[in-house]
Design a protein around this nucleic acid. Structure first.
Lengths: 248, 248
DNA sequence: AGGGTTGATGAACGTTTTTGCAGGAATACT
DNA sequence: AGTATTCCTGCAAAAACGTTCATCAACCCT
């Protein structure tokens, strides 16, 4: 097998599987590991792949992880744009925290007149920047990780609210296991919020779809609408549509 | 699985779900906990995540906002230094908002273990940065000017508290007219806080001494201690000392 | 044709990286 | 306070690495 030929084979293999092990290649092509290593070095030098200990990775796989400090920032912005369209003047709106909700807060039109209930410090900080929005903060103990209020008092307060719409920044959603999260206190709060709203909207980047965490918030049927950055026509949403969730 | 590959998986998991447990990862990837720990350490070193006991957190959520450019910043820092000395482990502490209180929040020693009650969004944002401080937020409608909660609900909640000490960031103080402010809602909240604390401490830059506003919070006798950046021996404090206010 | 050159390959060897494990220290939880 | 995790340090084994050298084939030049 020629050198060039071999390298093309390697490239093809990497682009196919996103990664490749030196040992696998050497077995597949039947040359010494040293030769493979030399090939990988050359390919890495021309910038076609990323060489790592034990093999190599596809370049397309690795690109662009951190952009603006917030993961998947642009996608979240797009989600916020879609979500804003659900809000009307005079509405009473419940929201959780989370970076996606923060984007929603930033995307609210200046003229909007509405009342926002939240237990999230960062979200509240954003809401109060807006001239015509009334902010009601739900008090109680503040969880350091999530920066939202948690605890019995908060739950009680939330249950006294009867909101028009609730925006949930969600942690994990799965067609079968529904909405899940990883913090017990946060789960209680989200449950209460869902109960206290006429309409429940989940905001999530598409990447979180069909992932799950340890604690259950509720089944999909508590959801009315799910908003992601993807096209609502995508096949991945079929299972959700079947369960009566509208996709935007 | 390659090391790099594994680390990207971890990074993805963290960005997706905001936090991750070492034990979960080690089960998911099927490597020893030590390996995961080493990965987390490396990722933390490059600044991509925040390592904590038992796992790691997403960085995108933990942003401290800067308060440089605050009026009379250095003086307020000095006031904060003095105020911190009044705080003991295990105390229940009520605080208002205001830039001076923010400095106090920043000056709190890392090891301090205490419970802070506040209705101020910016103050709460600072408090939760500290590892050993419990933060209870007093909820209700948020006043846009002062960024603190105001309203009957907040007052009711404050009255249920029995704090050891209360730090008031004050707007105006005068030997004759006592404590005054210019926002009716804020005045109500401060009144309630004073009632709910065993000891009341006023923090103010010396410049505000002997000034007054339209609305009265209370006479000087509600005050136990006043802290400014000036030397307590200054003549300007005599009138306050006479009325039983301790100057620091 | 013969000798020299070049490039590719494999082998050898010492070095570095990675990983898991053991113990004791540090930390969190109750 | 006491227990249970979790963390850290050092260590050792295995894997992977890079460097060097020898071999071999192809190629070039007289």
């Amino acid at each position: 097998m020629l050198k060039k030929e071999r390298q093309e084979f390697i490239l093809r293999e990497i682009n196919l599987h996103n990664k490749v092990l030196t040992s696998d290649l050497c077995e597949a092509i039947n040359v010494s590991e040293d030769t493979i290593r030399r090939d990988l070095s050359e390919l890495a030098e021309t910038g076609d792949i990323i060489k790592v200990h034990g093999g190599a990775l596809s370049k397309s796989f690795h690109v662009s992880f951190q952009t603006n400090g917030v993961y998947s920032h642009d996608n979240k912005k797009m989600i916020a744009q879609k979500a804003v369209r659900l809000i009307r003047d005079g509405m009473f709106i419940l929201t959780t925290g989370g970076t996606t909700i923060l984007e929603l807060a930033k995307a609210l039109p200046q003229h909007l007149r509405a009342t926002f209930f939240t237990g999230s410090l960062p979200a509240a900080m954003e809401y109060i920047q807006h001239p015509n929005i009334e902010v009601i903060f739900i008090g109680d103990r503040i969880s350091k990780n999530s920066k939202i209020t948690v605890g019995g008092d908060a739950i009680t307060k939330i249950k006294q609210i009867n909101a028009d719409i609730c925006f949930l920044g969600i942690n994990a959603i799965d067609a079968e296991h529904g909405l899940t999260d990883n913090d017990w206190d946060v789960v209680q709060v989200k449950k209460a919020m869902i109960q206290s709203s006429k309409k429940v909207v989940a905001l999530t980047i598409a990447e979180k779809i069909n992932t799950q965490q340890k604690l259950k918030i509720g089944d999909l049927d508590v959801l009315d609408i799910m908003i992601t950055e993807s096209d609502p026509g995508e096949k991945i949403f079929d299972a959700y549509k079947e369960k009566g969730v509208e996709i935007l």
